[in-house]
């Protein structure tokens, strides 16, 4: 018995899925806010260029909006993809984000509860062997990596369309897709997002060694020593 009262219906769902629900709602609200603010900026530019302002529906289906959305998505998924994969091999002494210093690597079958060490409640692929097991062993990083790649590709396609519109307004020739992915615009948009993600991860890894957030699983318990590694609150 866990001591947690069983709830049914919507209240039970929200209690069990509060984290996912909260961030999904925040995502939708901020995406809507971005569309409104972006529309205002776009129409300011339209008027300055002697063009007719666009509607909200036209803006949210435009290459400008798609580029702005995709360039942020790709960097977020890159951050999580790298973090998931790199933390297999690299550790940080004292960080709750890291495994214990001696545990770097793929870990044993026993520790991972796979094959003959799998329990009755283990996912079916963890009880299997061969290709299915290998695929499942990398499924989280693989999916995050694929979403990153797809978002980055979408950024390049939508970004090229928006960039070419801008070039034509400046009486310049449009560029090919290869021309765009080698352009300063593409790499400026890409790298300005990447640097912020890497800074945030490095900060989180370092600050969580010495600072605490009581009750958060992202922090060590308050009384845990700074040198304790791989302990979450």
């Amino acid at each position: 018995m866990t001591g947690v009262t069983e709830l049914t219906g919507a209240r039970g769902f929200l209690r069990d899925n509060g984290l996912w629900t909260c961030f999904t709602l925040l995502f939708l609200a901020t995406l809507a806010g971005q569309s409104v603010a972006g529309l205002a900026e776009q129409n300011h530019q339209q008027i300055a260029d002697g063009l007719i302002p666009v509607s909200w529906a036209q803006y949210v289906t435009s290459s400008d909006f798609a580029t702005d959305v995709a360039e942020n998505w790709q960097s977020e998924y890159l951050q999580f993809f790298l973090y998931i994969v790199v933390t297999v091999w690299l550790v940080q002494r004292g960080s709750p984000e890291s495994k214990k210093v001696g545990d770097a690597g793929l870990e044993s079958a026993r520790a991972q509860r796979i094959g003959r060490f799998a329990g009755p409640d283990s996912p079916r692929p963890a009880r299997s062997s061969g290709g299915l097991l290998r695929l499942y062993a990398n499924s989280l990083g693989l999916v995050m990596g694929v979403i990153f790649g797809a978002s980055w590709l979408a950024q390049s396609i939508a970004g090229r369309a928006a960039y070419n519109d801008q070039l034509l307004r400046q009486l310049e020739d449009p560029v090919s897709w290869w021309g765009y992915v080698g352009s300063a615009d593409f790499w400026n948009r890409t790298l300005q997002n990447w640097q912020s993600e890497f800074l945030a991860v490095a900060s989180m890894v370092a600050l969580s060694i010495y600072l605490r957030q009581r009750g958060s699983p992202e922090s060590k318990p308050m009384g845990t020593a700074h040198g304790a590694t791989g302990i979450e609150g």
């Binding site: 063009l51 007719i52 435009s62 290459s63 400008d64 369309a161 928006a162 070419n164 519109d165 070039l167 034509l168 307004r169 020739d173 449009p174």
Partner: peptide, 9 residues
């Protein structure tokens, strides 16, 4: 002919 957004060449 090239058309990008509301601009063309």
């Amino acid at each position: 002919v090239q058309v990008w957004g509301d601009s063309a060449q």
